[in-house]
Design a protein around this nucleic acid. Structure first.
Lengths: 193, 193
DNA sequence: CGAGTAGGTAAGCGCTTGCTTAGCATGCCA
DNA sequence: TGGCATGCTAAGCAAGCGCTTACCTACTCG
């Protein structure tokens, strides 16, 4: 089972192509050739180009939601939980900036039905962060007037990463860690009582 | 001179279309028909579709840079200057979210030469903010370890606005002002000594 | 009045797009 | 051995793309 299926190879090719050139600018021929297959092969495994985008988008959102949920579930003081959630969320976006870029910028290219499904996951992510802030305020650890707005702003730090962050080889690990820690620091300052 | 020239009408049509559907998904026929003209009219006033994008992108970046520069030039204490710069920058992005979306997300669609020109303005904006932070640190008003990273994070708040903010009628003014003030608050907290 | 120019259009060229169709090789099971 | 499912491809269709060409009209100015 170590072999990557043809289906999965096409998904990975699509991630590369979409991240590099955007959804509309990517041709199905491009995806196929990156996967080392003929143009028609795309349609053996996937219904349409949009279907491929939806798959990438859905899995990407699920992974990101999983990251924050786990960070929160690990428990600790409000400050610890917030720091871990922000750190891991930014870290994930740095490590998966290609998927992140697709997920964030190609949202409008989805069909209305698919968009609605993805939007639900998006709201779930915001919800997790709002709960963290609410909890911290209740316990007197945070002083936040506008919880919804602040939650959105904190997420903006991580999400906007994918706009400018470009992995470039060996120093990645270090750079990603530096940014993630910075974001944890900044988030903590934003809500400090 | 109150009449809008045909050239300008095409630019406005392009802004609408690019913001709504993205650069590659927008057809020159779409731009022309939004401007109430025939497809060929686009090429009477502009060299190419990319030329139109470059025009929008350049003017957008110039306006945004102008906003922060003016906010800084107005002077005051480090905190006052930072708050005004962040407030006005976010405010501009809320008021011009369509242009902002084009400017931020269609950067890669520019030709290499045009991209370089726009990139210079981008760096100039970051530079202004870094100077504000440096100055505040020097005068003991701010405590910031990573000035470059923090400057980028603060700008992320405003820029990420264009991803999710959608103007919707009468309450715009109020909403935009609320967000801009929130961002000024958060930026101040991020750097507070 | 007649020439030049600015601002526009109808038609269409050459190419690329997403996707389909018809058929072929391979491996599994009766 | 034969039948059939699976996974793939060569070829190509209809539609749409950015952009050009050839032409038309209205206005300005000597």
């Amino acid at each position: 089972m170590a072999t990557v299926t043809a289906r999965e190879r096409l998904v990975q090719a699509a991630v590369e192509a979409f991240a590099e050139k955007g959804f509309t600018a990517t041709t199905t021929r491009d995806i196929a050739s990156r996967a080392g297959m003929s143009p028609a092969a795309v349609y053996v495994h996937h219904d349409s180009k949009e279907d491929l985008l939806f798959h990438v988008s859905l899995e990407g959102h699920r992974a990101a939601l999983g990251v924050v949920r786990e960070a929160v579930a690990a428990g600790g003081s409000p400050v610890e939980v917030l720091r871990r959630a922000v750190h891991d969320f930014s870290r994930w976006h740095a490590a998966n900036s290609r998927v992140g870029r697709i997920v964030q910028y190609e949202f409008d290219a989805l069909t209305p039905e698919h968009r609605a499904e993805v939007a639900a996951l998006r709201r779930a992510i915001e919800h997790v962060l709002r709960d963290v802030l609410d909890d911290g305020v209740r316990r007197g650890a945070f002083a936040v007037a506008d919880v919804a707005g602040t939650a959105r702003a904190i997420l903006s730090l991580s999400i906007d990463l994918v706009r400018w962050f470009r992995p470039r080889g060996s120093e990645d690990e270090h750079t990603a860690e530096t940014i993630a820690s910075l974001h944890a620091d900044l988030a903590e300052r934003m809500v400090a009582a």
